[in-house]
Design a binder for these strands. Structure first.
Lengths: 249, 249
DNA sequence: ACCATGCTTCCACTGAACGGAAGGATGGGC
DNA sequence: GCCCATCCTTCCGTTCAGTGGAAGCATGGT
């Protein structure tokens, strides 16, 4: 049942972080469409500004589409309220500061502040990572719907480094810890060179709607020294969200 | 000639910054579609994740669409490279720091850092403003294709405050100034309470690909004192862009 | 000169999209 | 409780927009 809408969206979904610029033929293959059909769709999308074509003939996602995407409440509303707090946290730590939300069974990074002296991390605004291997993921998983939690723990968990925790029982213990302490510390579970300290951000009704983290180099820095600042920032954002008129789904 | 693609995009375009959450009927009206058609399209978009539906039945832009939008090179590539420099600039000034690009005859804001002590401005990431009334706009206009410049100056220019410069001749003079000094200072032209200091960001081939600005309160602060920092930041980003492997259209 | 690769245009067929209309669901006024 | 208003959902026969194979064009490598 190939509806036109689905095809249009498949074309958009053909772009990815590692291949953000595609030729028409690549696009057609990735979207699973005949060349002539892809040609027409892409033409319409380009005319509207959803895609743009550069001099070399490759297509990439256009600014108009980015603009529409920027209206997503979980991005726009959250960012706007959180930014001053993230800024403060960055100024105190001078490390990568990240804000992420839960979507499906993954973490989606919504904002990241990084300075020249921060560790280079491979997360990216708009990027996804699994829940079990990141600080923000552990926080979101710890406060998620139990049904989702079980589903995630039941599935096979990808190992990124020798330190990645893939054992459901141990993860369960860690999640309980996160709930009692209010912070998660993920040490080298995604990249050995970095560790992250994360805390939950709550919406007006008390649900956890996001998580923030500071990523610090794993060079002997004591992660616990960051806990108070991270926790305070998360509380600050939660309070600001409660006062703001923005709503979250 | 209502192609399906156009309809899908019209549905997406129905959302705006002041109305980011719409009911089905509102959407149908705004997109100019019969209710039943809107119903089907919105259903397909929601199934894919381009739209999301909240408990109150309203629709809003979904995270999946935001993710795809985040792949736009002018957003992603630019942001990634510029962030550390913007961060530095924020730390020095503690004011709103903005990064914007040119699209059509308008400025589009790509990133904004704001702290608790910054002036509250009404620009917004993903938002648009005209070229003649903002600092970044003047910079982008000054270095734009002459054909575009003439077109903008020929069109009627909206007045936002008593200080907005709407006279083509005077604007032309200001733009020449911007080209020689390398910075633009827009004083109260969009809001009386704030002024901005802007400078051009250049891509690998020397073209101006973006502009950055610092927005400061118009309370007697001397804008000229910000010029060196803004200029240095813009230069830093330009240099970093030249070294990076990202390309810009 | 030839072929390979990738893009663009054309056009006859067809089945997916269309939208009017009817049927639910909810809620609020009286 | 009843009615009416508003908004959402489903249905289905008609039709016309979307489809995609094929042929033509542009480039550039050998």
């Amino acid at each position: 049942m190939p509806t036109v809408t689905a095809r249009v969206l498949d074309v958009l979904a053909a772009f990815s972080a590692d291949r953000p610029r595609l030729t028409l033929s690549e696009l057609a293959v990735r979207a699973g469409l005949p060349l002539s059909t892809a040609h027409r769709l892409v033409g319409e999308l380009t005319a509207w500004g959803a895609l743009e074509r550069s001099d070399d003939g490759r297509y990439h996602v256009g600014l108009r589409l980015w603009e529409v995407g920027a209206l997503a409440p979980r991005s726009l509303g959250l960012r706007e309220t959180a930014m001053p707090f993230l800024e403060d946290l960055y100024e105190v730590t001078r490390q990568n500061v990240q804000l992420a939300v839960l979507d499906g069974t993954e973490v989606v990074y919504v904002e990241r502040l990084s300075g020249r002296s921060s560790v280079h991390v491979f997360t990216r605004v708009g990027g996804r990572l699994p829940l079990h291997a990141t600080g923000v993921g552990l926080v979101l998983l710890a406060h998620a719907d139990p049904e989702l939690r079980e589903r995630v723990l039941a599935a096979p968990l990808r190992r990124y480094t020798e330190k990645t925790v893939c054992d459901p029982a141990e993860l369960r213990r860690m999640l309980a810890d996160v709930r009692t302490t209010g912070v998660a510390i993920s040490d080298g579970q995604i990249e050995l060179i970095s560790l992250s300290v994360a805390a939950p951000v709550r919406g007006p009704n008390g649900d956890v709607v996001a998580a923030l983290s500071v990523v610090v180099p794993a060079d002997g820095t004591n992660p616990h020294s960051f806990v108070p600042a991270v926790r305070a920032t998360a509380r600050g954002i939660s309070r600001a969200l409660t006062l703001s008129e923005h709503h979250f789904p």
